[in-house]
Design a protein around this nucleic acid. Structure first.
Length: 267
DNA sequence: ATGGCCTGTTACACAGGA
């Protein structure tokens, strides 16, 4: 089974890229982030015409996630509140950033982690609170469903080698997406629960990215960051048999600034 | 050191992204 994650930066602006990519890269599930559209206006006809089912949680203008699947998905859940008590969730489900469902016995979780804007800002605090709740959400999920595959735009580069800059570059710690506090949150809420980064199971070296800034010709100069991830629970460590980045869509006309990352599971 | 580009919006500049 193949699961892909792709922040498309507006599914309506990127519809042709999505349908073209699905035709060339048939996957069991394509997890989209930043769809930027309410459910009623999601372009499901074009996707269903390719034989895919659409599971969508959207809002106007901002955020929004969707999972497109070949086979119907079971037990689809939207938001943290599907599993976590309301008093713990608070207002963290207002922005549409979480959708999940089950395919072939595997719980697929699709996330759009808040960007955080800049270190110390209100949005940065929101990101850290959101990651804390994500930890609770995953812990609760794992109690009932050991085979969990989490993917999405995490807006965090866990190690310096996930960034085009030289390892140890002093600017890294001061940058949102690579500050020590954000990395520690990822460690506490993801890795300490036994999840592993599927991409790093196969590819240890520097130089592999999933996002390139629109500015400064970052893609042409390969000034990228690896911030889109697949994390698999302990019960799936051995099942992860490949994880690759497809840079092709980022090189097209009017691209998303992210490109797809594909996980293959022996399931 | 700064900002550079892109998307959506009761748009005609701004918020938000990363």
């Amino acid at each position: 089974m193949k699961i892909a994650t792709w922040n498309v930066n507006s599914v309506r602006s990127r519809l042709e890229h999505v349908t073209d990519w699905l035709q060339e890269n048939p996957v069991d599930a394509l997890c989209l982030q930043e769809t930027k559209v309410v459910e009623e206006l999601f372009p499901r006809e074009a996707i269903e015409a390719l034989g895919y089912h659409c599971y969508v949680s959207g809002q106007k203008s901002y955020n929004g996630v969707a999972i497109l699947t070949k086979e119907p998905m079971e037990r689809v859940d939207v938001g943290f509140g599907a599993i976590v008590e309301a008093d713990k969730v608070g207002d963290l489900d207002t922005q549409k950033r979480v959708i999940s469902g089950v395919i072939k016995g595997v719980r697929i979780v699709n996330l759009y982690v808040p960007n955080g804007s800049s270190i110390g800002s209100e949005k940065y605090e929101y990101k850290l609170n959101w990651l804390n709740l994500l930890g609770t959400y995953l812990k609760t999920l794992l109690e009932d469903e050991p085979e969990v595959s989490v993917c999405g735009d995490f807006n965090i580069a866990f190690e310096d080698k996930d960034i085009y800059k030289e390892d140890g570059d002093k600017s890294i710690a001061k940058h949102v997406m690579s500050s020590p506090v954000e990395r520690e949150a990822l460690k506490t809420h993801i890795f300490d629960q036994g999840f592993i980064d599927a991409f790093r199971k196969f590819t240890p070296e520097k130089g592999h990215y999933s996002w390139w800034d629109y500015r400064t010709a970052a893609f042409r100069r390969d000034r990228g960051w690896r911030i889109d991830h697949h994390y698999v629970s302990p019960a799936l460590h051995d099942a992860a048999i490949a994880c690759t980045i497809d840079k092709t869509p980022r090189g097209r006309e009017k691209p998303s600034d992210h490109t797809p990352v594909i996980l293959e599971l022996d399931r």
